[in-house]
C-alpha cells in the first residue's frame, strides 16, 4: 500500500492507503473529517469540494494517493481561532443554506472563485458555481452571499482573512 503524507486543515497525517481510496473517503473515514460530505458518483454535485494546494477540487474525483504531498483545506479548516470566515458568515447572513448538505462544497468553491476574481458580478458567481448543485435554495441567496463575502474580503474590517 502506498504511503502518503498530507496536510489537512493545518495538521499533518501519514497513512498507508489503498490506491483506490478516494480523497473524500480518506478525509471522512480515516481522518474523521466528516464535514465534507459525498453527494454523487460522477463529480457533478460538488458537495465534496475542498481546496487542494489552494485550488478547488472535487475530493470524490481525486485519489488519496494523488493528494500525497498536498495541503488540503476542508470547510472544517476555515476561520481562525474559533471565528468564522467571512464566506461562512455571509452564507449565514444571506440565508444561503437550508438543509446545508451542499454548503461545505459551496463555500469552498466560492472561496476558489474569489481567489481569481475578487469582485465577481452576479453572472460570474453563477457561472463560477456551475459545478456545485443545491436542491434547496434556488441559488439566489448563495449568489448574494458570495458577493457579500467578496465585498467584505476586499475591505476587511480590521482583521486579515485568508482561507
Amino acid at each position: 500500500m502506498p504511503r502518503i503524507r498530507v496536510e489537512v486543515d493545518g495538521a499533518t497525517y501519514e497513512d498507508d492507503v489503498e490506491p483506490r481510496l478516494l480523497l473524500v473517503h480518506y478525509l471522512r473515514e480515516r481522518l474523521g473529517k466528516v464535514g465534507t460530505p459525498v453527494g454523487c458518483d460522477t463529480s457533478n454535485c460538488g458537495a465534496c469540494t475542498v481546496l487542494m494546494d489552494g485550488m478547488s477540487v472535487k475530493s470524490c474525483s481525486v485519489l488519496a494517493v494523488q493528494a500525497d504531498g498536498s495541503d488540503v483545506t476542508t470547510v472544517e479548516g476555515l476561520g481562525i481561532d474559533g471565528t468564522t470566515h467571512p464566506m461562512q458568515r455571509a452564507f449565514h447572513e444571506e440565508h444561503a443554506l437550508q438543509c446545508g448538505y451542499c454548503t461545505p462544497g459551496m463555500i469552498m468553491a466560492s472561496l476558489d472563485l474569489l481567489r481569481e476574481n475578487a469582485d465577481p458580478s452576479e453572472t460570474e458567481v453563477r457561472e463560477g458555481l456551475e459545478g456545485n448543485l443545491c436542491r434547496c435554495t434556488g441559488y439566489q441567496n448563495i449568489v448574494k452571499a458570495v458577493r457579500r463575502a467578496a465585498k467584505e474580503m476586499r475591505e476587511p474590517a480590521g482583521q486579515e482573512v485568508t482561507p
Binding site: 460530505p37 476561520g79 461545505p104
Partner: peptide, 16 residues
C-alpha cells in the same frame, strides 16, 4: 440558528 454547525461542517448526517 441552525446555520452555525452547517457552515462549519460540524454536522451529524447519518453517514457521519
Amino acid at each position: 440558528s441552525e446555520d452555525a454547525r452547517l457552515i462549519a461542517g460540524r454536522t451529524q448526517w447519518t453517514d457521519n
